Each structure stands twice: as structure tokens, then as C-alpha cells.
Simulated assay, not measured.
Amino acid sequence: MFYRNIDDIRLDMNKSGSVHEPFLFGINYEMSEGFFVPNPLLQTDILFQIKEAGNKSSDESEKVEAHLGSNPISYLEYENKFNVVHKGLRRGDSFLTNLTIKTPIETNISLLDIFKRSKSPYQLCLPDRFVCFSPERFVRITNGAISSNPMKGTIDAGIENAEQLILNDFKETAEHNTIVDLIRNDLSMVADNVRVERFRYIDRIKSRDREILQVSSEITGDLNDDYHSHLGDIIFKLLPAGSISGAPKAATVDLIRSAEREDRGYYTGIFGYYDGTDFDSAVLIRFIEQEGDRMYFRSGGGITAYSKCEDEYQEVLNKIYFPFI
């Protein structure tokens, strides 16, 4: 089920796709570990829900009130990481860099409880390791087309005129334009006739204590007729996900490593499900991991040359939440 040789996952995806056998898979950000589960609806070792498909139990967890406390890094610590990225941006190493942090949290509920209560399009739980409640698609493949919906631009919905503010913000617009160009280029490596179907639309994401707005776009391309037997090849060509690395990818990944100075693990990796006909996948964001008896919430945001450190620090803090009431 778990692999150190990630290329075996690619080959298994190709093989299962060629015979239309369902599978679940996941790959960590560093591409040093992953998992592959044939016929995943028949097992409960790894729990998942992707839109309407999954093995998530309908049994509700005990409705104790959930508490979430956090102890984020100081503004000064974040500023040091931000400055590493900003210097790289000014040198021209990158046009857009996704900078993330790891925040210790305290809660009275387990990873499994969080998974059971979560309301999100893409959910994954490896018990005693991590839980993810991602709002962001990586790619969807159906009827010969591949599409991606990158999210770039976040604001608290409670702010007056929030939608107009985020859509008219110069920095957020520049960041979003960059990621749309990156995803168009990525999809062009595996598909023809790549086009932007929807540009800068608003997703509303509700949590237990707030609602946030996120700006998304939809980019689509056409695949060759034999794409089922090349699902692994297609996905692996697109890694790492552009929305959680940046542009250009290779130099930006190096810049991320310099700024963050720790492995991300499965955070900002990807996972997905193939039902024998259609394929859907997500970026592993909105992510809580467990190490021994400690839990950590991972969050991040895109940095451009126009970014203000104070705003970016607040954004990563705003993304620490439970996706339920």
C-alpha cells in the first residue's frame, strides 16, 4: 500500500487505468513517499471522500464541542522566511512562491473526529498521521478532458465589500494571473487545446467561526483517446502542483526549501480517486498532522514581489480552522 519507490505508483495507475479498475492514491510533496490502494471502497485503512465518492462512514462522531487553539510562529520568525522568498523574487529566481508554516495546535478531538465532521469537497484521513479537508482540486479527468481549478487569493468574507476588494487587489490579481499561466503551461504538456473556461470566480468556504472567499479559475485541455492507460504518466508530469509551489517551478522549489528549511511531507502533495471511468484529485491543503501526542496545522499563501509581509502573515493564520460548525 505504501511506497518508497514512487515510480511504482505511476506504473500501477497506468495498469489500473488500462483495465478501468478503481484506485486511490497519494503522493507527498517531496515525492519520497506515496500510497496506492486498488478498489479503495473495500477497505478502511485509509479514509477518503471526493465529492460523492468515498468510504467515509455516515455515522456521526460524538457531538462534543470542538476546541481549537493555536500557537503560531511569531511575526518576526515569519518575516525571516518571507524575506528569503522576497529576495529571491527580486533577484528574478521566481515570479510567485508559495510559502508555508507549521503551527502547533491544541484540540480536544482526534484526527478521525475531525475527518468525520469535516465538510469539504476533498477529504482524506490516514489515522494517527494526518487529516486533510481540501477545497482545491488538482486535476479532474473525464470524457477525454483534463481540467484544473487553482485557488489564489483569500479574504475574510466578513470584511465590507470583501468580494470587490479581493477581485480588485493589484497583488492578488498579479498572483492569480501568474498561477493561471503556470497551470496552462503545465496542462499543455499533457493535453491539446488548453483554454481558460472560467477566470477569477469566487468560492465561499465556511468554517466553524468564519467564512472566507477564495478566487479560483478553471483551465481545461483535451487528452488523447488512450488516456486511461496513461493516467500515471499524465499526473506525474504535472508534479509538484503549481498552486503550492510557484513559477518557474524548479527555481521556486529551491527557493521554498531555502525559506522553509523543513520537509512538507504529505502537506501540499496530492491525492486522488479513479472510479474506473472518471478521475478526480486534490491538493493536500487545509491539513492537520500528528506527531506523537502533538498536532500541527499547516498553512500557506502565495508571495509575489508586491506582497506585504503583514498581510501574508495574517493570511496563513486565517487558514487555521475546522471546516464545520
Rank of each mutant, 00 (worst) to 15 (best):
M1F: 14
Y3N: 10
I9Y: 08
E21D: 15
I27C: 01
S32T: 15
G34F: 03
L42P: 10
T44M: 06
L47K: 04
Q49R: 10
A66K: 11
H67W: 15
S70L: 12
I73G: 03
E77T: 11
V84T: 07
V85F: 00
H86Y: 13
L96M: 10
L99S: 02
P104Q: 04
D113F: 07
F115K: 03
K119N: 14
P121W: 11
R129W: 13
F130Q: 01
F133K: 00
V139L: 05
T142N: 13
S148P: 02
M151E: 10
M151F: 13
G153E: 10
D156L: 10
D156C: 05
G158N: 07
A162K: 03
I166C: 03
D169C: 04
K171T: 07
V180G: 02
D181L: 09
L182I: 02
R184H: 09
S188Y: 02
I202S: 07
I205Q: 10
R208A: 12
E211N: 10
L213G: 02
L213K: 02
I219N: 01
T220F: 03
L223C: 01
Y227V: 01
L231I: 10
K237T: 08
D254N: 12
S258N: 13
S258Y: 12
E260R: 00
Y266M: 12
G269V: 05
F271Q: 03
D275N: 09
G276T: 04
R286P: 03
I288N: 03
E291F: 11
T304C: 05
A305N: 12
E312D: 06
Y313D: 04
I320Y: 08
F324S: 00
F324N: 04
